[in-house]
Design a protein around this nucleic acid. Structure first.
Length: 327
DNA sequence: TGGCAGGGGCCTG
DNA sequence: CAGGCCCCTGCC
């Protein structure tokens, strides 16, 4: 049980940012009697009342209107619950496990610095960052990200969540009250026919092959972990079913290469709508269709050297929220 | 009720 | 580059 006061952190925004698929809202209630006001409904006696060590940190006047959000997060074979009210976040996990979640949520990074660096003239990006100012680039389980983003191609987010959950239920280790993401050896126990039966469609053969490659050592996760962004991209793209977009997602969400900038259908739409008009039409039209977005990313996001992926997430979230600021 | 478009793409020719 | 791909969902 760890409580922290964190700037630029919003569980709801993170859950809706489309980078993790096993983060689900759980019931939460405001406990007016507790010093922090942070508690969750399923009270096992650990959470209520005695978690507060900061008695002077009373809620500000505005905090009274702040809602409490509670989420369960599963990553690999770990699970934690987090409850947030305003800037206060309670992590419900063993103290020995907190360092994992601290890394997972990238808590040591100041995202305010990223936001402050946004081009003043780029009003679109500023609005997107304001709308998603609580988003974090998560450092998730590498193997889980590879499989999850192979699944993600040509699928909607609710569908991806359901498929990942099905893999866990069928091939993952059953933990106390959730299923771990299946290890490579476990998932490799699935036949192609079984995977197809889960409605993975043409992705089934990609997953099958990747499982085999990891189990045989052809795809070496430890080696991949040591590579820089450029090397990791080239390596990942060499495997069956992993293209430019999926490789970028694995780099961004599994390897924490924050410079990765995945371009999917949403980002492509944004780039064309918001950025294509900023440069000369003839310049863009001279490029082949497939290279245009690449050019726009280089031209307008190179200034965020080393962390363009953060901007990508702000835009993705903003677009999916319908371009409206939600506080 | 059915047809069609599109989904956080990738592979093949 | 253009098709094809698995199959589901949202929309008309």
């Amino acid at each position: 049980m760890i409580e922290k006061e964190i700037k630029n952190f919003d569980l709801r925004q993170i859950a809706g940012s489309g980078q993790c698929f096993r983060m689900t809202e759980i019931p939460a209630a405001i406990d007016a009697e507790s010093g922090t006001g942070l508690t969750a409904k399923q009270d096992d006696g650990l959470l209520s009342g005695r978690s507060c060590t900061c008695s002077e940190a009373q809620p500000k006047a505005s905090a009274a209107a702040e809602t409490t959000a509670a989420y369960r997060i599963i990553s690999g074979s770990r699970m934690a619950e987090a409850v947030q009210r305003g800037r206060r976040v309670l992590f419900r996990c063993g103290e020995d496990e907190f360092p994992y979640w601290e890394e997972y949520f990238d808590l040591k990074t100041d995202y305010g610095v990223y936001i402050a660096s946004i081009d003043e003239k780029d009003s679109y990006l500023r609005a997107a960052a304001e709308a998603g100012s609580g988003i974090r680039i998560l450092k998730q389980d590498l193997w889980e990200m590879i499989i999850t983003f192979v699944i993600s191609q040509q699928k909607a987010i609710p569908n991806i969540r359901a498929l990942v959950e099905a893999l866990c239920r069928n091939y993952g280790t059953r933990m106390e009250d959730f299923y771990a993401f299946p290890a490579p050896g476990q998932l490799n126990g699935a036949t192609l026919e079984e995977l197809q039966a889960l409605k993975l469609g043409y992705r089934a053969k990609y997953i099958k092959r990747i499982c085999e490659d990891v189990c045989s050592g052809t795809l070496d996760l430890e080696l991949l972990r040591q590579m820089d962004y450029t090397a990791a991209m080239a390596y990942l793209k060499g495997f069956y079913g992993i293209g430019e977009k999926v490789a970028n997602c694995v780099c961004l969400f599994g390897l924490h290469h924050v410079e990765a900038f995945p371009v999917d259908t949403w980002i492509r739409k944004i780039l064309i709508r918001e950025y294509a008009c900023r440069c000369q039409k003839s310049t863009l039209e001279r490029l082949p269709q497939t290279r245009r977005c690449e050019y726009l990313v280089r031209r307008y996001f190179a200034r965020y050297k080393g962390y363009a992926g953060v901007m990508q997430q702000y835009m993705f979230y903003y677009e999916r929220m319908g371009g409206t600021v939600t506080h």
